[in-house]
């Protein structure tokens, strides 16, 4: 008998991984997106070891006698910025900040949005109405402007930036989770579990949560990209990460002054930013195709 129990426990996981691999092969977006993210993450994590220079050190030989930054060369692979710093090192280090803010603020979005969405969907009635009005309120804020004002008032530390983005950006997540909960609760097998005497908690954790999982993963992935863009936007407007700490949005702002004669800083930072965000958007779209086969056939 014990061998049979073992079979019962193992078989589903095996069957699932088999199916998972097959679907991954059908959806190259997931592979490509994940690959981009892994590469960008590795570059960011390894920045202290692979950067050719310190990201904040200024080098005399990086500026010409007229103060013009040198272009890409053997010493400065992506050229130098207006202060004589190595652009490549700053791009590598800047990835750390962007990914950190993107991921951590997404986690705040995720926790707040999921918890509120679940509460609204599960309890219903006036609790639902209240939570949804709060969600509408958060969604109606002019996001970037308000984040800008908050960071300006609170001070632009890393924590303030990611808290602000995290706390203003959970609205869509809450709506999606709530919608999914309402949909799942109407399913007949939920009724079946209730008829068997399952508690609402059991239904919540065994049935509702696994069903909410898929859309939440898709949304979280897309949210990382969106949050990275938002944080870079704050830096671009001068209210984000403060120089000399390297940050892509700040580098784009910084590169503006030297753009017409030394455009490499702006190109490098912008391209790094775009590649990272493309990675997350690709992965998110790809996962959506897998989890929602109907939308996949449309693509």
């Amino acid at each position: 008998m014990s061998t049979n129990v073992g079979a019962v426990v193992q078989a589903p996981t095996k069957a699932r991984t088999g199916k998972f691999k097959k679907s991954l092969k059908r959806y190259p977006l997931v592979y490509l997106g994940a690959l981009i993210i892994v590469i960008m993450a590795l570059l960011a994590i390894l920045a202290p070891w692979i950067s050719p220079h310190s990201p904040i050190a200024t080098f005399n030989n990086a500026l010409s006698e007229q103060g013009i930054p040198v272009g890409p060369s053997r010493e400065f692979l992506l050229g130098a910025d207006g202060n004589g710093r190595d652009v490549l090192s700053r791009v590598l280090w800047g990835g750390r900040i962007s990914l950190l803010i993107g991921l951590l603020s997404m986690i705040i979005n995720l926790v707040v949005g999921t918890v509120l969405g679940l509460i609204a969907g599960v309890f219903g009635g006036w609790v639902d109405a209240l939570v949804m009005r709060i969600t509408d309120t958060v969604l109606a804020f002019p996001f970037l402007l308000f984040a800008l004002a908050l960071v300006a008032i609170l001070g632009s530390s890393l924590w303030n930036i990611l808290l602000t983005i995290g706390i203003l950006g959970w609205g869509v997540m809450a709506r999606v989770v709530r919608g999914q909960v309402l949909q799942v609760r109407e399913l007949e097998y939920v009724q079946a579990a209730r008829a068997l005497g399952a508690t609402e908690w059991r239904i919540m954790f065994r049935i509702v949560l696994p069903n909410v999982f898929g859309p939440v993963i898709v949304l979280s992935t897309l949210q990382v990209g969106a949050n990275i863009l938002a944080a870079a936007g704050l830096s671009y407007l001068g209210m984000g990460i403060q120089p000399p700490t390297p940050d892509w949005g700040g580098m784009i702002q910084d590169g503006l002054t030297t753009y017409t004669y030394a455009p490499w800083e702006m190109y490098s930072a912008g391209i790094a930013l775009v590649i990272t965000v493309v990675g997350f958007n690709m992965l998110g779209d790809g996962l959506r195709d897998i989890l929602d086969p109907q939308s996949a056939t449309r693509q």
């Binding site: 007949e188 097998y189 079946a192 068997l196 005497g197 049935i207």
Partner: peptide, 29 residues
């Protein structure tokens, strides 16, 4: 007191194996 549903497609959780579905009542109680 138990219930058998009309739609045999909608009333079984597609994520669970038959063993999981049939063991659930015993786990609940």
């Amino acid at each position: 007191m138990q219930l058998v549903f009309q739609d045999p497609y909608a009333s079984l959780n597609p994520r669970n194996t038959i063993a999981q579905t049939l063991m659930e009542p015993m786990q609940i109680h």
